[in-house]
Design a protein around this nucleic acid. Structure first.
Lengths: 220, 220
DNA sequence: TTCGTATCTTGATCTGGGTCAAGGCTCAGG
DNA sequence: CCTGAGCCTTGACCCAGATCAAGATACGAA
């Protein structure tokens, strides 16, 4: 396809190490891009240091905003990460010429908006235990989608986030995260191998703990 | 412009009374549209009745999602409201033919996503007092933009939300909302005439109370 | 006018999660 | 082997905001 060729011509790759900040809030940003491998987070910070994660970037997720030239958030690599980037100017020009791209971006942005709104319910109304269960369910679902294993049988995967990052995602402290993870483990909702590797024996049980009606989630 | 003419041809108006639910979560939705006058809210509800507002629709805001045929949220009229609607099918066909529309929608969706992320910080990390101040600041700013009065001098406007709706927006109880509104009034950050009409003598003071750095907000 | 309903305020008390503090585990580097 | 730095867990205590309860205010209908 012609437009793919054109995109190919202006793309380039960048890699970053775990812990590195790719972009600071307010910084000028002359590229857009998408995650190839690894995980990054979008965070907002108040002057006194309180921080809230507002997005979790997994492979294939898009970063950047056409038509704005500074980032509104910090973008931080959680693991080593490879990004596929396009300089913003040529990308925007292409967007004008090839409507497909804008339509695809619209799709993706609407999905992100849905996810953000789902997250608002978690942040505003769920208990600490429900928040943890919700986060684990989301990661499990995305992981299952990526690794092509279905949702049957026990799910096994690694938590890509530290307790602190989970706390920032959920509007909790890291101590509360730790306590609630322990509690879910004690109650047999999850089991742990080391601190990061999680097994979910019964996904519906987890969804109940998350306060979700146990079928709303199957739309992957 | 030709495309505007075409849009004109497929549009129609609907009005609803305050309190009416326009759309139930999960309902089929065969139109998209935008608010002409009045105010509506998007809400999510858990089985046990906990509810979280995830969007506030003011005049000019868009409702509905091209490429999906059921709503993910309840849409409820807060005041009497008039909507301008397009049947989804012809609207989607037009979107394919006229790239402008997708680009414009992308713009708007990105703005909503930014607002949602801003709100995640409020929900996850702010205190009750900061939440109230944030909400009042947002409403004040949108109102000032609509009514064309600048941000100089005292701002006066009506709160379009009940205490309960404010609580649902902020992840609080209505009692806490009431107490914090009273506290902000006692401290001179706002003053009230009746229960709804608000005067803000010093907008920067309000932003301080909201925990925002006092200039980040001026980008209207 | 009285009544009823919806909305809001305020007080008293309780509690989930925050805060502070003290270790424990793991692994890289010396 | 030991040491130190990150990360995680657990305990003790505290407090912001939830919950429970009792009116107050406003207003339209009878």
């Amino acid at each position: 396809m012609d437009e793919l060729e054109q995109l190919d011509r202006i793309k380039y790759y960048r890699s970053y190490e775990a812990g590195q900040t790719l972009i600071w809030s307010g910084d000028p940003m002359d590229f857009v891009g998408s995650v190839v491998t690894g995980i990054a987070t979008l965070t907002q910070t108040m002057e006194d240091g309180r921080t809230q994660m507002v997005g979790l970037l997994l492979p294939s997720d898009f970063v950047g905003r056409p038509g704005r030239d500074s980032s509104a958030y910090n973008v931080v690599a959680t693991t080593d990460i490879v990004m596929c980037c396009f300089r913003k100017k040529p990308f925007e020009e292409m967007m004008v010429r090839t409507p497909h791209i804008a339509q695809r971006l619209l799709e993706m942005t609407l999905d992100e908006l849905d996810a953000a709104r789902e997250w608002m319910l978690v942040l505003g109304r769920k208990t600490a235990r429900e928040k943890i269960a919700s986060l684990i369910a989301i990661i499990a679902r995305r992981d299952a989608a990526l690794s092509m294993q279905g949702m049957r049988g026990p799910l096994v995967f690694d938590l890509p986030l530290t307790r602190e990052a989970m706390a920032d995602y959920l509007g909790l402290t890291l101590e509360t995260v730790s306590r609630q993870v322990s509690a879910l483990k004690k109650d047999g909702v999850i089991s742990l191998e080391g601190k990061r590797r999680v097994t979910i024996p019964d996904f519906n049980r987890l969804l109940e703990e998350a306060g979700d009606d146990s079928d709303g989630g199957m739309l992957i």
